Amino acid sequence: MTAVTARIASVDTAVATPGIVAVPVAQIRIPTEHRKHHANAIQALAEDIDLHGLRQPIEIVHEGDGYRLIFGALRLQAHQYLGRPMVQAIVKEADQFVSEAAMRLVSISENMLRNPLTMLDRSVAIADWCAIYRAAQPPMKPGPKPANSVQTELSANFAPNSEEAMDAHGETFAASFSDAAQAFLNISRRSVFNALKIASIPALQRDRIALHPLADNQGELYAIAQIAEPVRQISVIDLIIGGVVGTVEAALDYIDQRPRNTPAKWEKLSEKFARFHESEQDRFFDLNEASITRWQAKRGRK
């Protein structure tokens, strides 16, 4: 049983929702302006659809003797990859849209208005997925149980009790995905290990972090998860959320009253940079490409 098959399956042949019909894949045109998808993404989704069916129909509009795609290009291409002749679709008529611009806007908003997972959300999702997969596998030898651990969330209930067990389960879970799915989902033994570690932060504290920039900083989340004493962990989160300090290291120094030298300008910038979202970091790299290229050249990198 793979990590994917450990979930409850649905089927494409289930009774269609009103307004959703099966349409020939070959009759649907994908406009050139639609988002392009990597082959790994197409294969990964195709594997999932093959096992569980299509969870959300695509949307199309009548065009001549066929159809034009409004949204759902990845789902359509996954069906093409599988060689499936039909796909479930919501079919619209051109006169249901005020203009071509209105039709395109639907496609844009369907992609732009998605709320991407933060690193914290992703970690909990991977941990839960791993938990469901592990529940269907032969039991592994558990490590020592932590004292006074009363946990109710799924990821915590199935969390390995030692770092060795985490690493072993991460390797087994990652290996259950195809190479394409591993690449697309960024699933590896190490990423699963990190996710399990981060997901071990108690749910109450995760809720407090969830809407803070800290939720998208894997390094800081991992550092919080490494703090064994609950009271100390809570104090660190309090200091960061309260804006007193910007990092876990600074919070621990504050709690332990360890003297800190006045940070240099680059250290202050580094702390701020670590709290940026990935897209903001990429923008920073773009703006400082010349400096980064110079730095790489000094180290013999191309």
Rank of each mutant, 00 (worst) to 15 (best):
I255M: 12
L239N: 10
Q218N: 10
A199K: 02
Q257S: 12
R206V: 02
Y222F: 12
Q257Y: 11
A251K: 08
I241R: 13
S200A: 06
I209N: 01
P213L: 04
L221T: 10
K197V: 00
I227G: 11
D253T: 06
Q257N: 12
L252E: 15
D256T: 07
N217I: 10
A203N: 01
A228D: 13
Q218E: 15
A210T: 01
L214F: 03
A215S: 11
A203T: 07
L221V: 12
A199W: 01
D256A: 08
G246T: 07
V248F: 09
V244G: 06
E220H: 04
A250S: 14
R206G: 11
L239T: 04
A215Q: 04
Q233G: 10
Q226S: 15
E249A: 15
A250K: 12
E220K: 03
R258H: 12
T247D: 05
A223G: 08
G242M: 07
P259M: 09
E220L: 12
S235M: 14
V244K: 14
D207N: 08
I234Q: 13
L239I: 06
R258G: 05
D256S: 11
G219Y: 08
P213W: 00
S235W: 10
A228F: 06
Q233P: 04
A215W: 00
P230T: 11
P202Y: 06
A228R: 15
N261C: 09
R208W: 06
P213M: 00
I198T: 12
L239P: 05
R232Y: 01
Y254I: 08
I241F: 06
L214M: 05
V245K: 00
P259L: 12
R260K: 13
P202E: 08
T247E: 04
L214Q: 01
N217C: 15
R232A: 13
G243H: 14
D253H: 00
A250I: 05
Q233Y: 11
R208Y: 02
R208I: 10
I224T: 07
Q226W: 11
E249D: 14
I240P: 02
Q205M: 09
L221R: 00
A215Y: 04
A225D: 11
A215M: 08
I201D: 07
T247F: 03
V244E: 09
G243E: 12
L211Q: 07
G243A: 10
D207Y: 04
D207S: 06
I224V: 14
A225T: 15
D253W: 02
A228S: 15
Y254W: 13
A223F: 05
T247Y: 03
R206H: 06
I198M: 05
L196F: 02
L252I: 15
H212K: 02
A250H: 11
S200W: 01
D256E: 14
D216M: 00
L211V: 07
Q257D: 12
A228N: 13
D238A: 02
Q218Y: 11
A223I: 11
A250Q: 14
E249P: 04
A228V: 13
I227E: 07
A210W: 04
Q218H: 11
S200I: 03
S200H: 05
L211G: 03
Y254T: 14
P202N: 07
R208A: 07
V236F: 09
A199M: 05
H212R: 01
K197G: 03
D256I: 00
V236W: 09
R232Q: 15
N217Y: 04
I198K: 07
V245D: 05
P202C: 02
R208N: 03
I240E: 00
V236K: 09
E229L: 10
T247G: 11
